[in-house]
């Protein structure tokens, strides 16, 4: 059974198309990743799925309820950890949890026992009576995750929950999420722009860029799709080298970017010799060669022609241009 169905979903903000005709489904019990650079449309997608924003067009269902016409049932089915904190700083951790339980109609007895056990789960048991304004970013994030679980949602949405956290806290949060998924059978939708995170955590990953889903599969299949290994050749004559590789039959793809030429091939260790020979023949001076097995970073590069960091930088440029035009 599919816990989430999204059909041709779009969201426009004036001229800007933040989400552009995306479709996907998430199976029950899955950890599903939405991976993409800043401004790709991840938060907007989650906002629609969690009933906070109306879509411009398209349909989506969460736990079989329509997010536009059956908001209350959708809201009862989901927990959400927003990208930015949504806690009340002037209340204690316990009170934040307790009020959440009240809003979701959790009975007093259940609230009492579950709040404590969830706070222990995220290792905040001993801080339950501290005001949230005294918490660090990581503690707040953990508290939000605990809070999102209090009403036992079928689906938990996590919008970049590890953004800006130190590696240790990130690791801890990954552990919690895996544990929740396995022990409580909660379906999890996870957005991130960290490649390694999506790789480690998610069963399937949708790569999203400029509001479009450009690839969707398991991490392994995505890596297989780009065709074997990755050879990166650093050279000043990128144009010449890529031109001379134009007729190369065993090259799955050849791309010029960022002072180097990236080539996807099977059996890289064998082919690299041929590439070097070819370069020599064409008088291309090679500065450095890097060979590695494909990562999600390479997958992103393969599908978009840019690394995720370059995409983010250009995203900020676009933003600046948009602001200036106003």
């Amino acid at each position: 059974m599919d816990t989430i169905e999204v059909e041709k979903l779009s969201k426009k903000f004036g001229e800007l198309v933040a989400v552009n005709d995306i479709s996907f489904t998430v199976k029950e019990g899955e950890i599903f990743g939405l991976l993409g650079p800043n401004g790709a449309g991840k938060t907007t997608t989650l906002s629609i799925l969690t009933t906070l924003l109306p879509p411009s067009s398209g349909k989506s269902f969460v736990n079989n309820f329509d997010v536009e016409t059956d908001k209350d049932n959708v809201r009862k089915s989901i927990g959400m950890v927003f990208q930015d904190p949504t806690l009340d700083d002037e209340l204690t951790a316990y009170e934040n949890m307790d009020f959440h339980g009240r809003l979701y109609g959790v009975s007093k007895e259940i609230r009492k026992s579950k709040v404590i056990s969830l706070l222990k789960l995220v290792e905040l048991g001993d801080r339950k009576d501290s005001l949230v304004k005294t918490f660090s970013g990581g503690m707040k994030r953990r508290l939000e995750i605990a809070r999102g679980l209090l009403h036992e949602p079928k689906v938990l949405f996590l919008d970049e929950p590890t953004l800006g956290l130190d590696p240790q806290t990130r690791n801890k949060i990954w552990e919690y999420i895996k544990k929740l998924n396995q022990e409580k059978k909660i379906t999890i939708i996870y957005t991130t722009h960290y490649m390694d995170e999506a790789d480690k955590l998610c069963n399937r990953i949708a790569i999203i860029d400029h509001g479009k889903i450009i690839a969707l599969d398991t991490s392994q299949s995505l890596k297989n799709k780009i065709g074997g290994d990755v050879i990166i050749i650093k050279t000043t004559d990128q144009k010449k080298l890529s031109h001379s590789l134009k007729d190369c039959k065993w090259c799955e793809s050849v791309r010029v970017h960022d002072g180097s030429v990236t080539i996807n091939v099977h059996n890289a260790s064998k082919r690299v010799v041929e590439i070097v020979n070819l370069a020599e023949k064409n008088k291309v001076k090679i500065d450095d060669i890097i060979i590695h097995e494909p990562s999600l970073e390479d997958v992103f590069l393969y599908f978009t022609g840019k690394t995720i960091r370059e995409q983010e930088a250009s995203g900020i440029d676009n933003l600046r241009k948009r602001m200036m035009r106003r």
């Binding site: 809201r75 927003f82 904190p85 949504t86 700083d89 959440h100 809003l103």
Partner: peptide, 13 residues
Amino acid sequence: QFGFLKETLIAPV
């Protein structure tokens, strides 16, 4: 501004 409003608006009330 501090986000708490979202927490209430997303609740089934």
